[in-house]
Write a protein that binds this DNA or RNA. Structure first.
Lengths: 230, 230
DNA sequence: CGTGAAGTTTGATATTCCGCAATGAACCCG
DNA sequence: CGGGTTCATTGCGGAATATCAAACTTCACG
C-alpha cells in the first residue's frame, strides 16, 4: 500500500492518457497498490464489488466455475487494463472470478470513486466502455469457435489469443510470457488436458511449437494460423 | 415513419422509465418507427453503426457468421430492449448481425443522438450499461455451457433460455412465442439440426415437449430443467 | 388444388474425442 | 540430495455426435 507511486506508471495507459499531472497524482493518492502472488484469487464470482482494479504487471485469468467444479477460462487480462469493473456494466457483484496467472501487481480503488472517475476524468468512461466492448468481442469469438470449430482448431486459436496478449517475440518464434498448463488451455477450449497434450506433442513433432513445463513457444506462427482454420 | 407514436409505448420501458411526458415526446419525435418482416436482416456485422434501436415488438436474433458460412446465434433480444447500441461499447460498427426472428417493430435514432440521450435523460446511460452487462452474462453462460455440457444438456439450456425470453404460459406448459427451427437451435448450441431433431423426438416420446413445425411447447418444464443438468 | 420450397424425421455409418489408467519428467522444499 | 507434488505423455477402448442419405410433412403461393 505504498503512496509513493510514480505517475509514469499509468500516465500512458488509455484510461488515463488524457489526464494532466495533477489529476494523475490525485488518482494515485487514492489508489491501493498490491502484489498478488501467482494463483491468488483476487475476487470471486458473485462477491460484492467493493473495489475496481488496474493491472500494472502480470496476467489475470477470468474464470467461471460450474456447479460441478469444472472451470472455464473466459478471458485473459493483459497488463495495463482495468478489471473488476462491475460498475461499468451496471452490476453490484463481480460476474466472474479473477485469478493471478503469475505474480501480479495491481492498483485498486473503492467503488465509490467510480462515478467520480467517470465524471472528472475525460476519456475515462469512454475508454472503459471500449474495453468492455473488446471483451465482449472476445467472448463472441470464443462462442463462435466453440460452436463451429474442431478441437484442434480451437486449441490453435487459444494459443494465438495467448500470444497476442502475452507474446514475447524471439526472431521468428514467439513465446507465451506467462505460465500456462495443458489444463489451462483445455479450460479455455472446452477439452481435456489429455487432448491438448496430444495436440502439442503432435505439433512439436512437426516443428510448429516447442514446450517446456508450463511454457510454450510457437516456432512457426504461420503454421499455427493455418491449423486454427481462420 | 409515423410521427404519431403513443408515449405509452415506451414510457414504462427501463431505459426511459424515469422520464417525464415532455421528454418522452421529444424522444419519440426524433424516432423512426419501422416494421421488419420475419427473417429481415436489420443490420450486418462490421457495418457502420448509423442508428441505434429499440425493439417494440417481436424478437431479434443476434447472429455471427463464420468465413465458411456457418452461423451462430449468440443472443436473442426480447421486446422492450435496446439493440444495435455499438456506441455503448465504444464501437463505430455493429459487432454482429441482427435478424428479425419474426415480424418486428422497432424504433431507431441516428447515432448522433446517443450522447444527447446519455446526457439529458436520467437513467438512460445506467440502464443501457445494465443491459450490456446482462448480455455479457448471457455470453458467459453460453461459453460455460459449450465448454462443459453435453449436447443434450446444451439443447435443454437453449430451450430454457428461449422460454425465459419469449414464453407464453398455458397451464403447466410453456410455448415459445416466436418461430424456432431445429436449425436455429443447433445454431445456438453448436450442433446439427439432425441431433436437435433426434433429441426433440425423444423428449416428445417422453412427454417433455411437443412440437409442430417451427413451434415448440414444453409440456413439463421441470423435466427440462433436469435434462439441462443445472 | 397442385407444385415446389422449406423444415423435419430417421437410419446407417464414420469419426472425433473423451475417460481411464499408468508411467514418466520437472520442480519445490526441507 | 531425496521425497513428494504437480504437470505432462501416451495407449487403448468406447461413447457421443457428426455426416451422409433418403423419405416424409407442412406450408406458401400461384
Amino acid at each position: 500500500m505504498s503512496n509513493r507511486l510514480d505517475p509514469s506508471l499509468i500516465a500512458r495507459l488509455p484510461p488515463f492518457s488524457k489526464l494532466d499531472r495533477d489529476q494523475i497524482t490525485t488518482l494515485l493518492e487514492q489508489a491501493t497498490s498490491q502484489l498478488y502472488p501467482a494463483e491468488t484469487t483476487i475476487f470471486s464470482e458473485g462477491q460484492e464489488a467493493e473495489r475496481f482494479f488496474l493491472l500494472l504487471d502480470g496476467h489475470i485469468r477470468v474464470v467461471r466455475l460450474t456447479p460441478g467444479g469444472e472451470q472455464v477460462i473466459a478471458l485473459h487480462i493483459p497488463p495495463g487494463q482495468l478489471f473488476g469493473i462491475a460498475q461499468a456494466i451496471g452490476r453490484k457483484t463481480y460476474p466472474a472470478m479473477a485469478v493471478a496467472a503469475e505474480d501480479c501487481i495491481a492498483l485498486s480503488w473503492p467503488v465509490n470513486l467510480w462515478q467520480r472517475f467517470c465524471d472528472d476524468f475525460p476519456g475515462f468512461a469512454t475508454e472503459t466502455y471500449r474495453t468492455v466492448g473488446e471483451r465482449m468481442g472476445e467472448l463472441h469469438e470464443s462462442i463462435l469457435a466453440m460452436a463451429t470449430k474442431h478441437v484442434e482448431e480451437r486449441v490453435a486459436c487459444a494459443l494465438m489469443r495467448l500470444i497476442q496478449q502475452g507474446g514475447r517475440k524471439d526472431g521468428n518464434a514467439v513465446e507465451i510470457s506467462f505460465p500456462v498448463t495443458r489444463q489451462n488451455i483445455s479450460d479455455m477450449t472446452g477439452t481435456t488436458l489429455h487432448t491438448v497434450s496430444r495436440l502439442l506433442s503432435a505439433w512439436a513433432r512437426d516443428g510448429v511449437v516447442e514446450s517446456r513445463r508450463r511454457h510454450i513457444r510457437i516456432l512457426d506462427p504461420h503454421r499455427l494460423v493455418l491449423l486454427s482454420g481462420a
